[in-house]
Design a protein around this nucleic acid. Structure first.
Lengths: 222, 222
DNA sequence: ACCTGAACACCGTTCAAGT
DNA sequence: ACCTGAACACCGTTCAAGT
C-alpha cells in the first residue's frame, strides 16, 4: 500500500504525493516543508512530518540535509527567493524612483500576509545559515538601487539616503512582526494599508509629496 | 542525595537550588526558565529542563501550569513587566516630553540587548496568551502619555501623533528584530546607538531639532 | 548512490499512586 | 494540596543493513 515507487509522474495530484522520490527528493522535502508551514505553522514543522509528506522514511532526509537546521535553511532560502522576486516586481513597477521604493515596501508586507509562517521561519528561527549568494546579491543590488533612487530624487547625501532606506526597512519589518504577533488587533485595517501609511509618513522626512496613487490605496481589500 | 525538602531558607545560594520547592514552586519555575533562556536560548527551553533546574520531577510543573504554553505565557509576562519598568524609567527621565519618548525607545532596544532570548520569546513565540492586565494597563498609560507629549509639543492632531508614535514603535521593533536575527552585522555600532539615530531621523517628521543629548549619545559603549 | 528499520536520548503530557 | 514514577506518543539523530 506504500509501494508506489516506480510510478514516476502522475502530475496534478497535489493532495497525497506518494511516489515522490523519483530523483529530486531534496526539492520534494522543501516543498513538503512549505506546505506544512502553511497548514500547521512553525511549531508543526518536524523532520519526521516532512519525510512522511514526501513519502519516505524519517531517516531519508539525512541523505540530502545534514540536519533539521540545514533543511530549514533551505526552506528559508526558498522563501528569500520568493520575497526577493515579489519586491523586485514592485520596485520595477514604480514609474518614479520613490514609487518603486514604496511598492517594494508594500510587497514586503504583502508577502508576510500571504506566507505568515514562512515569514516567521525566515526571520525568527534561532540563527540558521546565511541566505544563499544568489539571493544576497539580488537583494543588495535592489537595495542599492533604492538608495540611489532616494538620493537622486531628493538630492540628499548617500549616507542620509542609506539611513532613510534603513529606517523604512526597520519600520516595515517591525510592522510585520507586530502584526504576526497579534499586537495590532486594535487596528482593523489590512496590513498592506498600514504599510502604505507608514511609507507616506516616512516620506515626509524627505519632503515627499503625495505620489502617483499606488495599488495599496485602492479601497476594496477584504 | 536529592532529599533536601525540609531545609527551608538557605538564602544566597544562587548556583544549585536543590530544596527549592518550599511553597513557591510557581515562581521558581519561571525563574528557572529565565535562567535557561539566558544560557541556552529559546530552543533550550523545555519543560523538563525547567523542572530539573527547580529540583522537581518533570510532572511537577503541571500542578502550577496547565501547559508548557502556560509556563511560557508566565515567563513572557515576567518579561513584559521588566520591559515596562525599564521603559517607564526612561520615559520619566526625559525633562522634555520628546526626550522621554526617545529614552523609552532606546530603553526598548537596551532591553533586547540585555535579554535577547527573553525578548525573542516575548515577541516571536507562536501565539501565547495575552499579557496580564497589569502590564497592559501600565503600557497603555505610558503610550498615551507619549502620544500626548508629542501632540502638545508639536501641535499636531491626535491621529497624527498616534501615527508618529506607532511608526517609532514599529521602527524600533523592527530594528531589534533584525539585530536579533543577525541581519545587522554590516553595522558595527551598538544597537542603542542605532536606535538613537532612528529616533533622531523620525524626529524630523515633526521638525524635532537636536534635543538635550541623551545617554545613548555618550561615546564609550564597548 | 540512495533508502530503510531499529535504536537511542530526548521531549510534552497523563495518570495512578504516594505523603 | 502537592509531588512522584511509570507510561505513551512524539521528536532529532545515528547506524548497520539492504538494493
Amino acid at each position: 500500500m506504500k509501494k508506489a515507487s516506480r510510478i514516476v509522474s502522475h502530475p496534478g495530484v497535489a493532495a497525497t504525493p506518494v511516489g515522490y522520490h523519483h530523483g529530486d527528493l531534496r526539492n520534494a522535502l522543501v516543498e513538503a516543508a512549505v506546505q506544512i508551514l502553511s497548514e500547521k505553522g512553525v511549531s508543526g514543522l518536524s523532520l519526521r512530518e516532512v519525510a512522511r509528506r514526501a513519502g519516505v522514511s524519517h531517516a531519508a532526509p539525512y541523505h540530502h540535509f545534514t540536519d533539521k537546521e540545514a533543511l530549514i535553511t533551505a526552506v528559508c532560502d526558498h522563501g528569500y527567493g520568493l520575497l526577493q522576486k515579489e519586491m523586485q516586481k514592485g520596485h520595477e513597477l514604480g514609474q518614479v524612483a520613490l514609487d518603486g521604493v514604496q511598492n517594494a515596501g508594500i510587497a514586503y508586507a504583502r508577502f508576510a500576509v500571504d506566507h505568515p509562517a514562512l515569514f516567521r521561519l525566515m526571520y525568527t528561527w534561532e540563527r540558521v545559515g546565511e541566505p544563499s549568494e544568489e539571493w544576497t546579491n539580488a537583494t543588495t543590488a535592489m537595495n542599492e538601487g533604492m538608495v540611489r533612487g532616494i538620493m537622486e530624487v531628493t538630492g540628499i547625501s548617500l549616507e542620509e539616503a542609506r539611513m532613510i532606506h534603513f529606517t523604512l526597512w526597520a519600520a516595515m519589518h517591525g510592522l510585520i512582526m507586530l502584526w504576526l504577533d497579534g499586537q495590532l488587533k486594535g487596528i482593523d485595517r489590512p496590513l498592506e494599508e498600514v504599510a502604505y501609511d507608514l511609507t507616506m509618513l516616512l516620506g515626509r522626512i524627505i519632503n515627499w509629496k503625495d505620489p502617483t496613487p499606488s495599488a495599496a490605496k485602492a479601497e476594496g481589500s477584504g
